[in-house]
Write a protein that binds this DNA or RNA. Sequence first.
DNA 1: CGGACATTTGACAAGCTTCAAGAGAAGTGG
DNA 2: CCACTTCTCTTGAAGCTTGTCAAATGTCCG
Lengths: 259, 259
Amino acid sequence: MSKDTALFATVPPAQCQACRLRQTGAFTAVKPKELAFIETFRASTASKSAGSTLIHEQKPNGKLFTLYSGWAFRYKTLSDGRRQILNFLLPGELIGLQQEFADGAMHGIEAVTDVSLCVFKRDGLWDLFRHHPSLGYDVTWMSAREEGFVDDNLLTAGRRNATERVAMLLMHLYRRLERLGLERTDADGLDASVEFPINQQHIADNLGLSLVHTNKTLRRLHKLGLHDLTDGRLRLLNTKALERIADYYDTPLKRVPLL
Amino acid sequence: MSKDTALFATVPPAQCQACRLRQTGAFTAVKPKELAFIETFRASTASKSAGSTLIHEQKPNGKLFTLYSGWAFRYKTLSDGRRQILNFLLPGELIGLQQEFADGAMHGIEAVTDVSLCVFKRDGLWDLFRHHPSLGYDVTWMSAREEGFVDDNLLTAGRRNATERVAMLLMHLYRRLERLGLERTDADGLDASVEFPINQQHIADNLGLSLVHTNKTLRRLHKLGLHDLTDGRLRLLNTKALERIADYYDTPLKRVPLL
DNA sequence: CGGACATTTGACAAGCTTCAAGAGAAGTGG
DNA sequence: CCACTTCTCTTGAAGCTTGTCAAATGTCCG
């Protein structure tokens, strides 16, 4: 049942200073005092297995996490069961912020793989803003960044056709994984790939397509030699073509905050 | 050319205390000290005419505004011109926050009607977080709230059909306008309506539909007696039916922050 | 009155969804 | 260890929703 992705095989260390995420170079540096605060702000760590619900769509629990390892996703469903995946969550991302301010606009969060989490103190967010404004600024930054992902995805669902949507998703996720240092090269040093634990139903639900059409579109791109997706690993075989199809070009990677 | 919506006919007053938005009851109260800070944070006011670009999609200017009167929208376009409206902006909403943190993920902002704005000091946002953490918290709140709108819209574009999309849009915008106190009742006291300055192209671009299909869908809902949209005013004639179609039900209105 | 723009309608084409069914992989229990 | 179930991926066929093309109407404004 549980798919261990070995993204960062372990559970978060007791000391934030030893955090493997902070060593990737993908995140902004924080001052020692702030790091110390984050460590006290963190109430505990937790592990959840693949497929489990981290936040229930109907009854949110008000908890705030950082995803330390594994994949998850945010979603909303209509009452007849149609589901839309809003965005995928990768290591380093803050989970549950929207709930703090929930206007009733609810969403659920589900683990794709086994995940480990840093769980923050309930109701501690205000303390964070008050005592460490720079961290408050970072939280806003993270929130705005996530909104940017949803913006992109809305453009995709609203205005791209099926082929463009799939190309977009492959590029987008590959880039995010790459910047986390999760790209791996095999023995002969030729073939770079990333772990890719989502199934076609996840892809369909993210892109606003049916499962069948998603499958056929993936198949087409594969036959064109643009990508390969086997054994839970994704390889991009023609990045330029994918970028052109998706009308999505790489942006210089920039460090982002991490709580 | 310019459509004056008379939402709040005037330009923002010199004193934030006299702000007509704050008197609507739609926004959270702020302490006098914070209000004073907001007043100093505001560098100027500005007016722009309908159709003008407030923030250019390609070259953002880093400015931060609050929309005081009128309608605007955020959008992204593909290189071949396909446009997606991400969300509509109504009085009281903060504009330009994402730019502060822009990861390259750009979007433009365009005025639908004549608008008036409170323009904040460039680079003053950090001061706000540092000296008034509660306002920083509010900014995050506003950001999360806007993300909630985009989330809803993504569910709409990804998983609702044309009829459901249109019903959703009508309900959603009506509710937002209503909570701002912008609903008006005509002479005989029977007919409530709101100003509705967007055209069918805006609706199509927001919902991810073609112009023609949007027209046909609107027509169908109108013939069913669910709504009426004439002379730039929207009346909902069968709210229950629209809610059912859209699978969208009212949430208790909650005060939100205002900068 | 002419020109620009928004709305409306019909006809046709295309893209995507739904239905149906089979193949392969993986886990379960007798 | 093998039958059995379950889940994911795959493919074909048919139908419906939505997009595209084209053109007419109406309105506003100079």
